[in-house]
């Protein structure tokens, strides 16, 4: 056979452009796989639907609570916003985790190890893409929610911590679940993390129980209730990095 060269060019020339194009191809492939999976296809939209639902539900519920109990829920809208900002990290992390489970079952993750991308490069690219998407979705979902006192700078900080949760959830699923069914059980166990932002309301020493969890620090970034937002952002990013490093080690052991 006379091999014919492909018209397409990628890695030759500018390596950065080649890497960006490869990332684009990987993102396109992941999007296709999400769209073709009935279980995963709707995951990216859940944070927006939740934000939209809460936008209307919180004022209604606040009115009822104020009339019956004298409690004004709308005063805590910023706490709701913290949770909304973290939603994309969780749902996009779930999506990436389920894709990683598929990869592991199909042996694709092992194959990436013999390509120029390498297994860590491929994993980093996938988690990075989902994290980037979670960051943007977090900021947008907070806008959709629209209640409370919007503060874009603080929202960007909280969304950064939320974005790291995509890698956290993705790796957690891939490291501890054997298949998608087991993955759903793992997610149920992780559901308690949604409540970590509520710890900003608790007094010490109870509040300290939430310190290891980045979700708590995201709420502190937004509310600045117990610690300055800058310090909370640093703590959130450091705790995220530690979790991700530990989970990556566990995931690596599992696939080797």
């Amino acid at each position: 056979m006379e091999p014919r060269e492909a018209a397409d060019t990628t890695a030759r020339g500018n390596p950065r452009r080649g890497a960006a194009r490869n990332l684009g191809r990987l993102a396109a492939a992941d999007l296709r796989m999400l769209a073709r999976d009935p279980l995963l296809a709707f995951l990216p939209f859940i944070p927006f639907l939740a934000a939209l639902a809460l936008r209307f539900a919180v004022p209604l519920l606040s009115g009822v609570l104020e009339r019956t109990l004298g409690f004004r829920l709308l005063d805590w809208a910023d706490l709701f916003r913290a949770v909304i900002l973290l939603f994309p990290g969780m749902f996009y992390g779930m999506a990436s985790g389920f894709l990683l489970l598929d990869d592991r079952d199909d042996g694709v993750s092992a194959y990436w190890g013999v390509t120029p991308a390498g297994r860590p490069g491929y994993l980093g690219a996938r988690l990075g893409l989902f994290s980037a998407a979670a960051f943007l979705a977090g900021v947008l979902a907070a806008r959709v929610f629209g209640l409370g006192r919007p503060d874009l700078v603080r929202e960007l900080g909280a969304a950064a911590i939320g974005a790291a949760q995509a890698a956290f959830f993705g790796l957690f699923l891939a490291a501890f679940a054997s298949d998608k069914v087991e993955g759903l059980s793992v997610l149920k166990a992780l559901g308690g993390l949604d409540l970590a932002p509520l710890a900003v309301l608790a007094a010490l020493p109870l509040r300290a129980a939430a310190w290891p969890f980045p979700q708590y620090w995201a709420a502190e970034v937004l509310l600045g209730r117990n610690v300055r937002p800058g310090i909370a952002l640093a703590a959130g990013l450091v705790s995220s990095a530690l979790w991700i490093a530990a989970l990556y080690g566990k995931y690596r052991k599992r696939i080797e």
Binding site: P3, R4, E5, T10, A11, R12, T115
Partner: peptide, 10 residues
């Protein structure tokens, strides 16, 4: 294939 340098087959 996109992760490999050229030349590549069609």
């Amino acid at each position: 294939a996109s992760f490999y340098p050229e030349p590549r087959d069609d």
